[in-house]
């Protein structure tokens, strides 16, 4: 058996190396912009928000989901998040707990209220749709510098704002994308737009961020509050299916006193 597989795997490895090697290392400019982006978004500790998700299919029919999301900043790893669904009514009370990781699969649990059952679920579904929307799980998980390799592509204007255009190559082999192109505004290091390219390198989706708002969070060191920017509207369009999803955030609150204990799987059943 080995005699068959060894040459094949070698070939694959060689081809893969050849294909990836130009981007294995990030260029300094792309990397430093992304490091600054992460630095500016560090220190918010916890947040809570209410979301309305509007799904539109290719025929223009829409449906809505309402959920609430709680997030906990985790230093040195991906964040923890808890989503609680309010509508559609048949999934009301369903809770989704995710510990995202910089490398490797996330840890995910689902609480099914009808059975009072907490289920640990397979988490290699990063590329799968979140709640039937055009957002994949990985689109909604926390940004970590190590998740991509970067290539600086130049400057561009988005809606009158000066941005840097940067190519992101996912480091996780289970990502659903071959690359992302992000436009980062030069003043506040916020993402204004992201293009997602599928595994065949075809443009799949465009995500635009708008209605940005700054929230102040008191820092442990220094008297100054730090400002964190959040977009109230995320609109994603799938170019291959014609479907789109809009995510409206409201009632954003920061540093709400959430702790690790609030993200314990045994507390899923009390999530409301």
């Amino acid at each position: 058996m080995k005699k068959i597989y060894l040459p094949l795997s070698l070939t694959v490895a060689l081809v893969a190396t050849a294909a990836i090697s130009p981007v294995l290392a990030s260029d300094n400019q792309g990397l430093s912009i992304m490091q600054e982006r992460k630095l500016r978004d560090t220190g918010w500790r916890s947040s809570e928000a209410t979301l309305a998700m509007h799904l539109t299919n290719a025929q223009g029919q829409t449906s809505t989901r309402n959920l609430r999301m709680k997030n906990l900043e985790v230093a040195g790893d991906g964040d923890k998040s808890l989503s609680i669904f309010d509508t559609p009514h048949d999934v009301q009370g369903t809770a989704f707990l995710s510990f995202s990781h910089v490398t490797g699969a996330d840890d995910q649990w689902l609480y099914l209220p009808a059975l009072k059952r907490v289920k640990r679920i397979a988490s290699r579904n990063k590329s799968g749709p979140f709640m039937g929307s055009e957002f994949a799980y990985e689109d909604l998980s926390s940004f970590e510098v190590e998740k991509y390799r970067y290539q600086y592509l130049g400057e561009a204007d988005i809606g009158g704002e000066k941005t840097w255009k940067i190519e992101n190559i996912p480091t996780d082999q289970y990502s659903g994308y071959s690359k992302l192109i992000t436009w980062i505004d030069q003043q506040h290091y916020r993402v204004l737009k992201t293009e997602y390219y599928d595994r065949k390198s075809a443009l799949l989706k465009t995500l635009t961020f708008s209605d940005y708002q700054a929230y102040e969070v008191k820092q442990e060191t220094g008297d100054e509050n730090k400002r964190f920017w959040r977009a109230n509207l995320l609109a994603i369009e799938n170019h291959q299916t014609g479907k789109s999803t809009k995510l409206n955030f409201s009632e954003y609150r920061f540093d709400t006193g959430l702790t690790e204990a609030d993200f314990n799987k045994s507390k899923l059943k009390r999530a409301r």
Partner: peptide
């Protein structure tokens, strides 16, 4: 065991 094949044949189906 339970094995999940994600995105069956390039669809959204698991």
């Amino acid at each position: 065991f339970e094995y999940t094949l994600i995105g069956l044949a390039d669809t959204n189906i698991d």
